[in-house]
Amino acid sequence: MSDALAIDVRGMTKRFGRLTAVDHIDLQVRAGEICGFLGPNGSGKTTFIRMLCGLLRPDDGQGTCLGENVITGSEEIKRQVGYMTQRFSFWEDLSIVENLDFVARMYSVKNRREAVRSSIERLGLGERQKQLAGQLSGGWKQRLALAACMIHDPKLLLLDEPTAGVDPKARRDFWEEIHRLAAEGLTFLIATHYMDEAERCHRLAYIAKGKLLTHGTVSEVIAEAHLTTWSVSGPDLLALSDQLQGRPGVQQAVAFGNALHVSGGDAAALEQAIQPFRTSPHEWRQVESGLEDVFIHLMDETHHNALE
């Protein structure tokens, strides 16, 4: 891993009419790093990624992507970047091989046949390579798209929700592959809504309403939120949750499996708020805040801010 920055942009902004979809975002990602890109629906992740690979013209902002200027060098950037779109965007009326072959040709991949063959092999789609892409199941389409955007050995991969709809085994294989490639020096910017995936990233960037809220490693992001969390287990958690919501000091009460996570920014106030409820049959214990607690907290905050 080197200290060179694969992505180094500042003030990236994109407006659609009166809506500012991406609002002055600065982002640095080191080469060989896996950066998770998180944020609620409509927060501007896709828009930001599209600006990085030259699909949208930023209204403001500057910087470099793989050392090339993001504004003027998009042709060169396109050559070295693999972009996987959120929505399946390969040709449904072409077969798997034909799609891969087309992509390989477009990037003028050397040893094209070999590249396509090994890509199909890695995908494990050997017997179905003649099948039309449109006939694949959702998860397989996703895997095909991933294979296709890596066929030209890009240095930077911009993946927009690459594992949406992919089964757990395939997802684990996918993340193992990503870590292996990152160790070889590839850089990843991965938009995702899955917490377990976020935890596998070297670094996280969380955006909401087009603004970058936090940026750092998993533990940095958690520490920065200054959140205290209690976990309760026992009967009638739903009723308990209703009673806790809105009490001073309680910022959120969220069900996690058989437990309820109650969190707040002010540890003392939170403890006071839950005091009356700390009776049997409920069992309370303080836990470390997880990423999910933090993100739900962040989402709520931006929501409240927006309402004010």
Binding site: L55, K78, R87, S89, M106, Y107
Partner: peptide, 13 residues
């Protein structure tokens, strides 16, 4: 209309 334009445009052509 089929959304393949995004893919096409992301390639160096």
């Amino acid at each position: 209309e089929r959304g393949t334009m995004e893919n096409l445009l992301s390639m160096p052509t």
